[in-house]
Nucleic acid binder design. Structure first.
Length: 466
RNA sequence: UCCCCAGUAGCUCAGUUGGUUAGAGCGGUGGACUGUUAAUCCAUGUGUCGUUGGUUCAACUCCAACCUGGGGAGCCA
């Protein structure tokens, strides 16, 4: 008994005449008066379903086969044959069909064989993996993740699993989720009324991580090239198509690298993973190009075949000022760029991902390396058309005196950064890194416009079902 | 969190300028036909018209609050 998957059958990996067993789910059923039914089966192994010809000579044809509906699960024993019809090279001729699970009440089964809106599918996060679109997203997401690991591995990076629970607010930015085992109906208090975290699980206030960067820096300052790839949490009340409360982030950290070094790394990485997706998932990408976003494939090809445009923040301000566009938020050197500004630069001025570098230090985090001009820091953002910031990175301030100065200026608790400062006290080296929002990458690649549709079970404000 | 829009059949929507019988397509079901493939053709439509409260002789239709969803903004990845 040979168990087969749809992908191998369609690829011709089973010889014509071979008998195989295929387990999967019914996508559609068409009955022919010629004495058989066509049943399209999918098992998730690839985009397409395989067609099985089920003859009415099977003993359960009248009682079961003719009653199959979308998403019934079946196991069929069949012979691989060349298809007599158009649309596929190979198909199956069933000699046995066992129904594993029926769909009760097909009329109200939520995944009816018709077009559904993404909003509707989101309400059925447990059933939407059965749809074409979510299946394709899932396979592309997997391919991107694998390609990222492979890219860094080939570049001699080590994957470091940084902690998900943290007791420090790493960047001093972003709302954090508390991690606690305290009885919320009876919270222990200090005499001044504050929460007595000494009685909590970790003996101090703890959170879910907002970034693995600081921890990654520790490992980069020993293993030279490392990266993190894991879940990240932000408790911000963000209700947009680009934000999640729980998302995955890739954060390479490179010793002895400067800003241009990691900008190049970001470009190489994106081109590498885009090539991998086009090579490994042509079926799914063709679907995205046909049904979701016409540019899904050409956009990636364009990125692969062109050098990224680098632009200094200062030059970007000039371009915005000379654009002649009326912006809602006025442009001036020193302001943080607004969505409309980033959109203009990435979508209109460049028409492709653009790397913005060297931002004013006052709008950036304390750990970013100060440039010689005394006004800017060695920070970069990679802005993607349609998505906005997909990568944010910087050279890290490796000079202890300058780091301390920034910590003081920004009013951060220096005592909380003891181990981080140690990295500068003991054999400090220049280093740099960036963070890639993994779901934003998946959005960009697939053309899916809402980030909640490229992660299996999205978590967002007032939304954590399933 | 702020601004705007929407919430009517399993799904996508139309509709009622307040009035007593609420519609279409898709899906499902039944039939016809067919090596079919988002098949085609015929038949088949009793749904708290998001929730609560208010105005009114009368509300699905007007008003308010709330809930949910979408688009945009802020925050950022």
């Amino acid at each position: 008994m040979t168990f087969a998957v749809v992908k191998d059958i369609l690829a011709g990996k089973h010889a014509v005449g071979d008998t195989i067993v295929l387990r999967g789910w019914v996508r559609t059923r068409r009955d022919s008066k010629a004495g058989f039914s066509f049943i399209n089966l999918h098992d998730g192994s690839c985009f397409d379903a395989v067609q099985a010809v089920v003859p009415n000579s099977l003993s359960n044809y009248q009682n079961e086969v003719l009653k199959l509906t979308t998403s019934c699960s079946v196991s069929i024993t069949a012979t691989v044959t060349e298809s007599q019809g158009k649309g596929q090279e190979f198909e199956l001729l069933a000699s046995e069909l066992e129904v594993l699970g029926w769909v009760e009440d097909p009329e109200t089964y939520p995944m009816a064989p018709k077009r559904h809106t993404m909003e509707y599918l989101r309400e059925y996060a447990h059933l939407r993996p059965r749809t074409n679109v979510t299946g394709a997203v899932t396979r592309v997401r997997h391919t991107l993740a694998q390609a990222i690991h492979r890219f860094f591995h080939e570049e001699n990076f080590f994957w470091v699993s940084t902690p998900i629970i943290t007791t420090s607010d790493a960047e001093g930015a972003g709302e954090l989720f508390h991690v606690s085992t305290l009885d919320m109906t009876n919270i222990p208090r200090n005499e001044d009324g504050s929460v007595d975290y000494k009685q909590d699980f970790f003996g101090k206030e703890a959170f879910l991580t907002v970034s693995g960067q600081l921890n990654a820096e520790a490992y980069a300052c020993a293993l030279s090239k490392v990266y993190t790839f894991g879940p990240t949490f932000r408790a911000e009340n963000s209700n947009t198509s680009r934000h999640l409360a729980e998302f995955w982030m890739v954060e390479p950290e490179v010793a002895f690298a400067d800003l241009d070094g990691v900008a190049k790394l970001a470009e190489d990485m994106l081109k590498y993973v885009f090539k991998a997706v086009l090579a490994e998932r042509p079926d799914d990408m063709a679907f995205f190009a046909e049904r979701i976003d016409k540019e899904a494939i050409t956009r990636l090809e364009h990125v692969i075949n062109n050098d990224f445009v680098h632009m200094d923040y200062t030059d970007a301000i000039d371009i915005l000022l000379k654009s002649g566009k009326e912006f809602k938020y006025p442009v001036a050197w020193g302001v943080d760029l607004q969505s409309e500004h980033e959109r203009y630069l990435a979508e209109e001025h460049v028409g492709a991902p653009v790397i913005l570098k060297n931002y004013p230090r006052d709008i950036k985090a304390f750990y970013m390396r100060q440039n010689e001009d005394g006004k800017t820091v060695a920070a970069m953002d990679v802005l993607a058309p349609g998505i906005g910031e997909i990568i944010g990175g910087s050279a890290r301030e490796e000079r202890l005196d300058l780091l301390d100065k920034r910590i003081d200026e920004m009013g951060l608790p220096k005592e909380e950064y003891g181990w981080y400062r140690d990295l500068r006290r003991y054999g400090t080296v220049p280093h740099a890194g960036f963070g890639l929002g993994f779901e934003r990458l998946v959005s960009y690649v697939t053309g899916m416009s809402n980030i909640r549709d490229v992660i299996p079970f999205p978590r967002a404000p007032h939304s954590a079902d399933f």
